[in-house]
């Protein structure tokens, strides 16, 4: 395996790791709002890592004389476009859900209530 393959594998498994952290986070956190923390942030970073790894692997042996290589570059740019979209969309969706929960009136979990 070449150096690029090692980099790709490490990035990919880091992405999968952060996805797993996000999934465990939304299972373990005590209330709704803190679950959103785990969901929103870990997903953004994990998507970035995994998709960058895939985009890098797609252009691993780039040869500027071949049309196929340029097509691969186009597909990689499309994958980077997904990352851009995730960065715009994830906070917006998180914000919408949080605002809905706030208006509907879900109570935040607080430390003081538990200790009383």
């Amino acid at each position: 395996m070449s150096i690029v393959s090692w980099v790709v594998a490490v990035l990919l498994f880091l992405g999968v790791f952060f996805f797993a952290i996000g999934a465990i986070g939304i299972l373990r956190f005590p209330d709704f709002y803190s679950r959103l923390h785990a969901a929103g942030k870990c997903d953004a970073l994990a998507s970035t890592l995994a998709l960058v790894a895939i985009a890098l692997f797609n252009v691993r042996d780039f040869d500027w004389t071949l049309f196929q290589s340029w097509d691969n570059l186009r597909v990689s740019l499309k994958i980077l476009l997904i990352i851009l979209f995730v960065y715009v969309a994830t906070p917006a969706a998180t914000h919408a859900i949080t605002k809905a929960a706030f208006i509907v009136g879900i109570e935040p979990w607080e430390k003081r209530k538990r200790n009383r």
């Binding site: 952290i21 923390h37 942030k41 538990r114």
Partner: peptide, 27 residues
Amino acid sequence: FYQIVLSSLEITYIVLHPRMLEIIDPR
């Protein structure tokens, strides 16, 4: 992006901490 990496590492620390409820203090 640097801040996002920091935030994910912090969330990772909190999620995997065995006594998570003592660390977090939402407000």
